[in-house]
């Protein structure tokens, strides 16, 4: 008797939690008729926001991958004084409140910021431009990619990189033909996480880039700007983001499965270990 009651309590709690998590998502699609939502997708506010979000996100993620991948590989494969500190610092933006990140970016790159006058001297103004959105997104989202990439590189078998070297492949060929393909799954998972965080970016962007329609107003900012004026538009945009999130979630799952199936062992740089 008691046992079945406990089992019932487990199932009830699980169903309640699941319903709680799913309800808001379902409500987005249930609130208005699908036809009205689809109609909103041609609203200029929505199309402008979509364009800004896509452009800045893609650019930001490109920056993150190009700079973050080598950084993560170095942190995963080399041990040097200050290594632990470096890994911790990489993760700092992750725990920083987004508004603080925005203020920090302004204090660094703003007109009166640390680098602001030097940038101004060479004709670069960042705050409240589309570049500012890209920078804010890159700043806030990069730790998610780098963290995952470090883990992915650390999980690749060091013997395989060593084997590659003994077969006549230099560091570059070893990296691109052996290490990168083996870490691929983890890198994709990291990119999915970073993309999701970047698309949802709000605080840092609004502080550092503002919310100008067609220039710096991303999807997330547009949802906030529109919800008092045109609730259907915010629902339509939210719906798009829900679908996008599902795609990212699937990418994340696939990435993590790949990673698990392709690697074991501990890291080393191009298969070399120092003897001292």
């Amino acid at each position: 008797m008691r046992r079945s009651l406990l089992a019932f309590a487990y199932v009830a709690a699980a169903l309640l939690a699941l319903a709680f998590l799913l309800l808001p998502i379902l409500a987005i699609f249930a609130h208005s008729s699908p036809a009205r939502l689809v109609q909103q997708l041609s609203n200029p506010v929505v199309t402008d926001a979509l364009e800004v979000s896509l452009k800045t996100s893609v650019l930001a993620q490109l920056l993150i991958v190009l700079l973050g991948t080598p950084a993560a590989y170095l942190l995963a494969s080399r041990r040097f004084p200050g290594h632990a500190l470096a890994v911790t610092l990489v993760e700092l933006p992750l725990v920083l409140p987004p508004a603080v990140a925005g203020i920090g970016l302004l204090a660094a790159f703003g007109h009166f910021g640390l680098l602001g006058s030097s940038l101004h001297a060479v004709g670069i103004t960042l705050p409240f431009t589309q570049s500012a959105v890209t920078i804010a997104v890159a700043y806030v989202a990069s730790p998610l990619y780098i963290r995952q990439a470090i883990a992915a590189f650390e999980a690749t078998d060091a013997q395989l990189a060593a084997a590659s070297r003994t077969l006549g492949a230099g560091p570059a060929r070893t990296f691109f033909r052996v290490v990168l393909p083996l870490a691929r799954g983890g890198l994709i998972a990291g990119l999915a996480l970073s993309f999701a965080r970047g698309i949802g970016e709000f605080g840092a962007t609004i502080m550092f880039a503002g919310s100008l329609q067609g220039v710096t107003q991303t999807f997330s900012l547009a949802i906030y700007a529109e919800f008092a004026r045109n609730f259907d538009a915010t629902l339509a945009m939210s719906g798009v983001l829900v679908l996008f999130s599902i795609v990212l979630l699937v990418a994340l799952r696939i990435g993590l499965t790949w990673q698990r199936s392709s690697s074991t062992g501990s890291p080393s740089l191009f298969g070399l270990t120092s003897s001292s």
């Binding site: 395989l160 492949a169 298969g271």
Partner: peptide
Amino acid sequence: VPAERRRIGLVFQEYALFPH
């Protein structure tokens, strides 16, 4: 001389075949 420029054949204990 770097590993890739030494003409050696090394068979690893667990073979270290590239799984991909």
